Amino acid sequence: MMMKNNSYLKLTIHILFWLFYVVVAFFLMPNFSGHEMTLLERIDFKLLPLVLTLTYFNDLYLLPTLFQKKQYALYGFLIVAIVLLATALYCNHIIDCSCSFGMCLSQQLWKFLLPVIFLSLIHILSSFFEKQKELENTQKERVEMELKFLKSQINPHVLFNNLNTVYAQAVKGSDNVADMILMLSENLKYILYQSEEKLVSLQMDVDFIDNYLEFQTLRTQGINRIVFNKTIDSYNHKIAPLLLIGLIENAFKHSSFKEDALSDILIDLSVKNGILKFKCMNEVDAESGKRETEGFQIGLKNLEKRLNLIYPKKHRFFVENNEKTFTAHLEIDLK
């Protein structure tokens, strides 16, 4: 469809130009014949075929084979030589004006140069925009492929963690297994059907987080104390799926284990005037506070890549890491 539109546009430009050319070359120029001429008599049908042949020889052959292949010197030499030759041929052999070569050039050269220069510019501009469009499409495809790859790294990770959790609870004979399977089903539905979307509704993503945290609350009873604070002025926004859940998962995976007390996981999510602010803090063991594990670093780099691809110059992400707590901060402009 795009190629057809470009072809129609180019055809329209050419038709309008030749109408303009005929008016300027044959109707606006003074009549030197000495007698009144009809409209058809004013059109030089000896000149037009030569001009058209020269113009489209340049447009269809010289520009694609020489100019676009950056053989500028050869192209320039040939086009100048052909224009001068065509002008001399027209003056001395077609209309036989018996004028000097200098007089011929001053009177007739512009009639050959005008269409060659104008339509060459149109050809060059058209080729430039087509190349730009191809580059944009290539870049878009590259970004989409990279995003799919990054999300494919996330989805199995979330799925296997949840399945392992259900299995562990079933082995223990927990009464919560049925509820956990139902929650897992909802989580999987979101992961399978919504993660392929570029953007999903904020409400849907928050519901997924709520369901995930409820799942984790059942799984980590007696281990974690989970606090999830939400302050959202409007759900009328869209967000890339599975951005926040990676940070929440890491909080559970790397939270400290205390025999005599619960380990805190604090999550704050706010949206105000289209600006999302997210903070996820969990307690860590002193000896593992630096968290230099390869998997953890890959997860952070994965998230940063997705943010740079989806929200370039519209996000801020940083972490605070000390001996007792690890905190991830994320801010996204959803507007």
Rank of each mutant, 00 (worst) to 15 (best):
Y167A: 11
I332M: 09
L74C: 05
D210I: 07
K313P: 01
C91K: 06
N155S: 14
A168R: 11
T325E: 12
L303G: 05
L307N: 08
N162F: 09
K279D: 04
K253I: 06
G289V: 01
K69W: 03
N224P: 04
S174A: 09
N302S: 00
T327S: 02
G295A: 11
D205V: 02
S195P: 02
L266T: 13
I223C: 05
L85D: 02
F317W: 12
I275T: 12
F67Y: 15
A170V: 07
L119C: 10
E41M: 12
I122W: 14
L213V: 11
Q221D: 03
E134P: 01
D260N: 15
S120T: 15
W110I: 13
N236L: 11
K70T: 12
D179G: 07
I117Y: 11
L192E: 13
M1A: 12
I82E: 01
Q194P: 03
V319A: 07
T38H: 04
M37D: 11
R291Q: 12
Y72E: 10
N92E: 14
E214I: 13
L47E: 15
F112T: 03
M37I: 03
K69V: 01
K277Q: 11
N92A: 09
L40H: 07
D96E: 05
K111P: 06
N137I: 10
H93T: 15
T87Q: 00
G173L: 08
L39T: 06
I122P: 02
T217K: 03
I248F: 00
N322M: 10
K313R: 07
V51H: 09
L199F: 11
L84C: 03
K10W: 09
K131A: 12
E136W: 09
S33V: 11
C104P: 14
E283H: 04
C99L: 08
S120N: 02
V166L: 13
A261S: 14
V227G: 01
A261I: 06
G102N: 05
N236T: 06
L16I: 09
A240I: 03
R306E: 11
S270I: 08
A328E: 03
T327I: 13
S152N: 05
I95C: 02
L74E: 00
A25Q: 14
P30T: 00
L300E: 02
N164S: 13
T12S: 14
G76D: 03
L262W: 06
K272E: 14
K279S: 09
T138R: 06
S120C: 03
V271D: 03
S120E: 04
L202S: 03
N322R: 01
F118D: 02
N176G: 04
E294Y: 11
V83N: 15
S288A: 10
P312K: 08
S100D: 06
G274W: 02
V206W: 04
Q68P: 01
L213M: 10
S33L: 07
Q153R: 13
V166G: 08
E146Y: 07
H237C: 06
F27C: 07
G274R: 00
F77K: 09
Q169L: 15
K10F: 15
N137Y: 10
N58T: 05
T325D: 04
K230L: 08
K253D: 10
H123V: 05
K230S: 04
M183E: 12
I209D: 04
P115A: 02
Q153C: 07
L334D: 04
Q216N: 06
G76H: 06
